[in-house]
Nucleic acid binder design. Sequence first.
DNA 1: GCATTACGCTACGACTCGTAGCGAAAGCTC
DNA 2: GAGCTTTCGCTACGAGTCGTAGCGTAATGC
Lengths: 213, 213
Amino acid sequence: MQSRTPATPRTGRPRSAAADAAILAATREALVELGWSKLTLGDVATRAGVAKTTLYRRWSGKNELVVDAVAELFDELELPDRGSLAADIEGVVLQFAAILARPEAKSGLMAVVAESTRDDALRERIRASIVDPQKDLVLDGRARAQARGELPPETDPEEASRTVDLIFDVVAGAVVHRTLVSAEPADEEWVRSFTKVLLLGLTSAGSSNLSGI
Amino acid sequence: MQSRTPATPRTGRPRSAAADAAILAATREALVELGWSKLTLGDVATRAGVAKTTLYRRWSGKNELVVDAVAELFDELELPDRGSLAADIEGVVLQFAAILARPEAKSGLMAVVAESTRDDALRERIRASIVDPQKDLVLDGRARAQARGELPPETDPEEASRTVDLIFDVVAGAVVHRTLVSAEPADEEWVRSFTKVLLLGLTSAGSSNLSGI
DNA sequence: GCATTACGCTACGACTCGTAGCGAAAGCTC
DNA sequence: GAGCTTTCGCTACGAGTCGTAGCGTAATGC
């Protein structure tokens, strides 16, 4: 899943799965204690109890390692059924905010996103392991709301795709900006206000010919 | 303005203002060519035609230098009067997106934001030189819309402050996420869709007892 | 047993960092 | 002008990190 292609060799000593987990956990620990800039691969290897060369055999560099370490933080994200679209959104946004509030996510995620502006492979890695799973939650939430009758079924699939992308950028961007730039907590009060604005904007736009914009 | 406190000494050789400009320009140039991680202060000094020691006398490190270099990019942001709130928002968001699309802004801004999660002084520097001027544009836009009668005058100043903060996080966050994470252009079509959702959300929320949320 | 791969360890050259020390230059005040 | 003060360019330095090579050993499949 992570690391680079070991090509699944059929012979020889297999790689230790425990080492992978130890390295990723050590990476998160180092992110908390040292932050992105002072994190060194040698230190991570020592914390994980493996040799530095072992780490380099599995990850090509600091960027890829941190992406995988941070991605695991977002694995716990899920979309609980709270009965209404508004409640569903508030629930998942609060989960997202709670993860982003953790120091290992703060210092690691933004740094690799910054690096990804000059590294297409890294951006693709981030997209596949972090962004796309989040976007799937938006898709699930929309489907659920449509089943409830809170949102009309989409007619134009391309238009629906654009709308999902817009929603995703608005939701994730707002929470990230609130947490990292404004450095204020995305607490329940803030999330309620945000969800209200978002939902009213979407439903009003939908009922006033969204496809005509 | 930038650099650290030279204490304004009354005597002795004054610092070269041209050197400051050359260093900041060289920093942006290095950001474009090398990106954040491969940018070294020694290289910037060489590009600027100054000694490395001169650079260290004015900036305490890479973080502070890049903040000042990137902050100048946002100086050109202004709020043109386009006649309506929607048009004003679209105009300033497009300007913001154009700046963020530049490689020196992409690679530099996110990196220093990431660093600021573990450095309060750096976050304050970013806030004062980059974030607050942007937020002032939101305040100007609201005042103008209120003068036009497009928005009601605020009653509770604390509630109004929270609303401005929310708008700012939504706008800036969405554009940043669209540009850096989704890696899609925040072009006119996207900005129109986004503005429509935002405005409908705000006006609907305002007319349906925003202070009661 | 044998081939193959992973592992831990050591050592290495290359690079960047941030600072110290020096003499020279450029201002201001008198 | 003389003298004081601060900045400037330059060189050099120890410290730290990087990523890799080489070696002997450990763990698998055949």
